[in-house]
Design a protein around this nucleic acid. Sequence first.
DNA 1: AGCGATCCTTGACCGAGATCAAACCAGCAA
DNA 2: TTGCTGGTTTGATCTCGGTCAAGGATCGCT
Lengths: 203, 203
Amino acid sequence: MGRRRSVSAGEPLIWEDDDSLLVANVIEGVLKLTTSTADGREQIVGVAYPSDFIGRPFGQTSAASVVALTDARVCVFARNDFDRFAREHPELEHKLLERTLAELDRTRAWMMLLGRKSAPEKIATFLLDMSERLADNGCMAHTGPARQFTLPFSRQQVADLLGLTIETVSRQFTKLKADGVVALPGRRDVEILDRSSLVMLAG
Amino acid sequence: MGRRRSVSAGEPLIWEDDDSLLVANVIEGVLKLTTSTADGREQIVGVAYPSDFIGRPFGQTSAASVVALTDARVCVFARNDFDRFAREHPELEHKLLERTLAELDRTRAWMMLLGRKSAPEKIATFLLDMSERLADNGCMAHTGPARQFTLPFSRQQVADLLGLTIETVSRQFTKLKADGVVALPGRRDVEILDRSSLVMLAG
DNA sequence: AGCGATCCTTGACCGAGATCAAACCAGCAA
DNA sequence: TTGCTGGTTTGATCTCGGTCAAGGATCGCT
């Protein structure tokens, strides 16, 4: 049915305001969903992990661009084919509905973060969120939140996710390190030393 | 099937973190979907207009509280009943999927606003959005965006929607009035005098 | 009408986070 | 090694929007 396709890190899969011609399933890797203003400000509005669905069925244009954060493999479908197929397979539509509702919940929780949380709260929430998301997405069974992990994001991308600037993100990371809450062994590596502090900070 | 129910302005319909026991369809009126932090900060994460769907099918808890902004009439269903019924009626699930996808698009656009837009941009975007939403929701056919309308929100609620404080909202409204972009004949009444300026400001 | 509660506006001030700018560092190629 | 490149950290300063504190306006009630 769908065509397998590899996307290397940084490569776009869908452009904002494109006629929504394709949908896809993530097999491997991580991709970002973004919207941008005319003057170049960017906001990451979603992140797709393996098994997540990408694209906008039953609609004219996709509201967001999709760009791979890591090398990724996806299974793409022509939107029209998918729409038709979905309507004939209620089980598929049901699955898709459940996923979409879950994504909407997650997105709404993120709105709270964007609209009402301070920079330290944003960073703490982000790290806890990553620690859970990245744990579940290896192959191993449900081992609970990861204590250490590698972010699929650059500092700028963390900023775009949290509605901050890169400098503020950097300063907050440095602060957490200085306070012994996390260790930062590599550019994108995080080790959580004091989870309860993070939970406090997340508010 | 569903029970009709009246909800007066300010009255809650669903509590955050409640076991999601009911879902509903809005017949008349406007309701807000909110999440709050422990220390009382609030973010409006969605607004439900007539014909919109409320609640969280296929899930354990609802992520948001629902409170009526105006007197409202809704058609409520026990969640279990609804879930069962939906699974037996693919057409209903399809409709629900389309609505949920549209809501997700709108929510993502709002994330851009919350994370990256300045106070003036937020206010301008909000007014344009209202002008379109409130126009379509009367009975009259598609008349395009309304030039004047009555907000279903208090100033505090506008603040909770935009991730601002009430004072900032007030000052921005005053500014727009002083600049002749809008007139404010009543507490909640808005008349758009210069739409193109608003579009500029919205960015 | 008069009164009180609530909402809204306005002003003075402050501070979190943005901006501007410079150094720092890791990775990579020659 | 050296130098280059892109990402990251750090510092100095500024500014937008938040906070605190008074007034005003509007609505509902008696």
